[in-house]
Design a protein around this nucleic acid. Structure first.
Length: 445
RNA sequence: GUCCCCAUCGUCUAGAGGCCUAGGACACCAGCCUUUCACGUUGGUAACACGGGUUCGAAUCCCGUUGGGGACGCCA
């Protein structure tokens, strides 16, 4: 058993890609299959090395790995050889129309209310015409002649599906400059690398029909292949995800403070009745089931993702987040604030509270109370008992209790009405900071 | 435009003719707990897109409408 994840390095990985990659990985790891990471970089104009690097990095961040990897641009000889075989068997035919002519043809068909399918005009081109074009320096591009039949398969997610080949254009496999196209390289590689399970997005179902036809033309046994297509994700409003891709790039989510366990857990449960929980891919392996995935498109809801992220954070060990915390942040600090965070990135603000500078808002009407607080502030050393001792003394002196007692203190000390327990925060910020802030809040100077 | 697919609470879904006064999780709201927030806990709001059939009986089957997604590239 071998599965492959085959992104093209033409942009950053987004949540839709992550879902497909994760599903491939989970299925492979669950059934003891191998994972191939294949870079579909035949579009040389759009492919970039930096995206290839980013891709590997993002997959690793998500907690995925792979057993083998190659890029298609390194295997051009393989595709050329396969093309020769197809030409020899009469499956590949040369065409001369340029892109403008093809576009005009399609527009004409569309206007006539017909599907824009290639009319196979080039099939009736004579050897003489071709020779003349070549003599004039015009090289042909090559199309694969589709069979006149329907291709059917039992899809792992969608159930029984079929594609009617006669209603499709013969796909271009080789450009006029000789470079191979995705439809072709994908099949050649699947055949050559021994892929057994193809798990990809639903936008590929027509490709599956075409590629199965091509697979057979190249001598492949269609029974050796199992297909499953995941319904595409939509955005939170139910619209195409493509509009939000920038915000939903793994890079961006990571930068925003989203944890890989939150993303993996969410995306693995999306489209199923399983209750999502934050977990890294390796912990999701036992529970993964392809046939549990719904046939309808699921919405990617950032709020749900955030809820999972929050849940993960609240139980996260210091060691698990240390590298994303502000310089110098300590374990007691983390334990004190983690319960108040939705995103790790929010820890920064609390680190300012205990180790940096906070300018509290002035509380003129609380001036007397804050002065009393200043006077009763215990000497250091401080520990977790200090807050209780201090507020106890203050209560005795001012007669205040409850909110009236601690809210002005919280506001003065942290600049905010809400936050982590002051019992833990106070000793971490230290007497110096506390004094300064109380004075500022009281309006002194 | 043509073809394909999909359609249950805000979100993900359970539901395969009577078990449904439609269940769960998350989100949301409220109470309790907590000297704030969060956690926890208790409760609540909230859905079968619409119209026709079939049937004793339909969320479940059929047809249509509407809505959404996808495919139709010398992109992948």
């Amino acid at each position: 058993m071998k599965l492959r994840f085959a992104p093209s390095p033409t942009g950053l990985l987004h949540v839709g890609n992550a879902r497909v990659a994760l599903a491939n990985w989970l299925l492979a790891r669950q059934k003891g299959g191998r994972v191939l990471l294949r870079l579909d970089d035949t579009d040389t104009a759009r492919s970039k090395a930096e995206y290839a690097d980013a891709l590997a990095e993002d997959l690793t961040w998500l907690g995925l790995d792979w057993d083998e990897s190659f890029r298609q641009s390194d295997r051009l000889a393989l595709y050329a050889a396969a093309a020769e075989r197809l030409k020899a068997s009469g499956h590949l035919y040369p065409c001369l129309e340029n892109e403008d002519e093809l576009k005009a043809k399609r527009d004409r068909q569309l206007r006539a209310g017909r599907p824009p399918i290639y009319d196979r005009a080039a099939l009736s081109m004579t050897a003489d015409q071709l020779a003349r074009a070549r003599a004039n320096g015009k090289e042909p591009y090559w199309r694969f002649k589709l069979s006149h039949r329907s291709i059917a398969w039992r899809d792992g997610v969608l159930g029984e599906r079929q594609v009617k080949l006669p209603s499709l254009s013969d796909p271009v496999l080789i450009r006029a400059d000789g470079s191979p196209l995705y439809t072709f390289t994908s099949v050649v590689d699947d055949l050559d690398s021994g892929v057994t399970h193809i798990l990809r997005g639903e936008d590929h179902v027509t490709n599956t029909g075409v590629q199965l036809d091509l697979w057979e033309a190249l001598g492949g046994d269609p029974r050796a292949l199992t297909f499953a297509h995941l319904p595409l994700l939509t955005d939170a409003e139910g619209g195409p995800l493509s509009k939000r891709l920038g915000a939903l790039a793994l890079r961006q989510l990571r930068r925003d403070g989203i944890e890989p366990a939150a993303l993996a857990g969410y995306v693995a449960a999306l489209g199923t009745a399983t209750d999502p929980h934050p977990a890294m891919p390796r912990d999701l392996v036992p529970g993964f089931r392809l046939d549990a995935i719904s046939r309808s498109a699921a919405r990617f809801d950032p709020r749900q993702l955030l809820a999972l992220n929050r849940r993960w954070l609240h139980g996260a060990d210091f060691a698990a987040v240390q590298d994303r915390l502000p310089e110098g942040a300590t374990e007691p600090f983390w334990l004190a604030v983690r319960g108040n965070l939705d995103l790790v990135t929010e820890a920064k603000a609390w680190w300012e509270v205990v180790a940096g500078t906070v300018v509290p808002p002035p509380q003129e009407e609380e001036r007397d109370f804050l002065r009393a607080a200043l006077e009763t502030l215990p000497p250091e050393p401080w520990d977790e008992a200090t807050w209780g001792a201090w507020t106890g003394a203050l209560r005795n002196r001012t007669g205040r209790k409850g909110k009236a007692l601690f809210l002005p203190l919280r506001l003065a000390l942290t600049g905010d009405e809400h936050g982590p327990e002051l019992k833990a925060l106070l000793p971490q910020m230290g007497r110096e900071r506390a004094l300064l802030r109380l004075r500022v809040a009281a309006g002194a100077r």
